[in-house]
Nucleic acid binder design. Sequence first.
DNA 1: ATCGCGCAAATTGCACACAAAGGCCGATTC
DNA 2: GAATCGGCCTTTGTGTGCAATTTGCGCGAT
Lengths: 233, 233
Amino acid sequence: MAKKVDDLGRGRSQAVHRALKRAILDQALSPGSKLPEDSIGERLGVSRTLVREALVRLSEEGLVDLRPNKGATVARPTLEEGRNLFLTRMALERLVVETLAGKLTKEQIDILAAHIAAEDAEKEHATSIRLAGEFHTMLAQMTNNASLIRYVNELVARSSLILALYGRPHSSDCAVSEHQELLDSLIAGKAEDASKLMAHHLDSITTRALLPREDDRNIKDVLTAYAAAEGLA
Amino acid sequence: MAKKVDDLGRGRSQAVHRALKRAILDQALSPGSKLPEDSIGERLGVSRTLVREALVRLSEEGLVDLRPNKGATVARPTLEEGRNLFLTRMALERLVVETLAGKLTKEQIDILAAHIAAEDAEKEHATSIRLAGEFHTMLAQMTNNASLIRYVNELVARSSLILALYGRPHSSDCAVSEHQELLDSLIAGKAEDASKLMAHHLDSITTRALLPREDDRNIKDVLTAYAAAEGLA
DNA sequence: ATCGCGCAAATTGCACACAAAGGCCGATTC
DNA sequence: GAATCGGCCTTTGTGTGCAATTTGCGCGAT
């Protein structure tokens, strides 16, 4: 799944980067967790230097917060940031499907169809989330547009964080049927339809997973915000 | 111009980052230039460690290429990457103006109008390019959408690189009149118009500065590429 | 004269050591 | 008894040294 192009870069620092990224996306490290340089380095068998480099990269990707003299923590986006992020994501992913509509090769279609099948079969929630995200990154990948790929990857990754924080426990975050419909319009070459479907799809996620439970979610929100401000948990 | 949020982060490493970024965008360091860690550090009065951190950040922003064991060079995007980049930029900046249409405060309008006036008055080419870019980043800034701001900033910066490499010497890269029209539709709250204008505006840049003169541009292109390969200016 | 081999210089990769800043906890004072 | 001050301890910030890799050059062989 990790692309070859990611494997270039400087050897071990990239390895640390991937390890941490994976840990964060798997929620082995939950948002807000402290990320002390030396304990991470110790655990991974490298020096602080490399951990530091990885942390800088991760902060640049928006997955960790890096506060001066206070160290790194797993990013804890606000609900507001989350909504804005999905807005940005929508703009970019619309470009993705518009670019792809009617241009998919047979091989690509097969890959995507297989992936959707895998999503459909998956039972475990965490894995299911990862697969859903991968569907989006795979689409981006197929555009062959480097900056687009990069940003969509980043945004999808951060979306995981958002959903981890604010998502409802068992909302099927990406409806598999929507992925299938999307693929169908892409094959049919209906760019406009695909764009609309993607917009609707992402909008569904925000309304389905983020918006509802506004009342008690807000309470929790406010509490955690203040807790952080006071330096509590 | 540099935002406060950029000034947070770790003091001196950020300073190095900004210095290099500025140098690159001003074309004091032209695309393809080598960026040895120690000579930069010596020049700026810091150690390689900080330079390294800055280079990692810059590579993450796509302004420098970082190749394993081969060091850092100022990024040298291909023409293809350039076109893709502008495609991505278009998607995001359409979101920017759609978000902003009819929502600008009086203060914001004044700031933008003043900036356009400054652009209009500017005679020097390099400064004029910078101002034109700043107009776009200012717009993004006003959306208050963190990820959107970040990406537009990055893309605008990289656009400078592209234009430096492939732009025609005296093409007015951003027609000031187009900025004015854009602002007018934003004030009028015509989101659709603004979006179209932005798309047209960016498309103009690519066709005006990138696409035309395909023949001799290609020649020059090949020449500069080979020149760099041979270590010539 | 050209090609190839190998050594030397330059540059990066990485770790460690020291300096400084922040946080925690106990002591002291009101 | 609570609040504040002070010092220790933990964690980050930064410089430097050494090993490894790459690049460039020169010498020798064909």
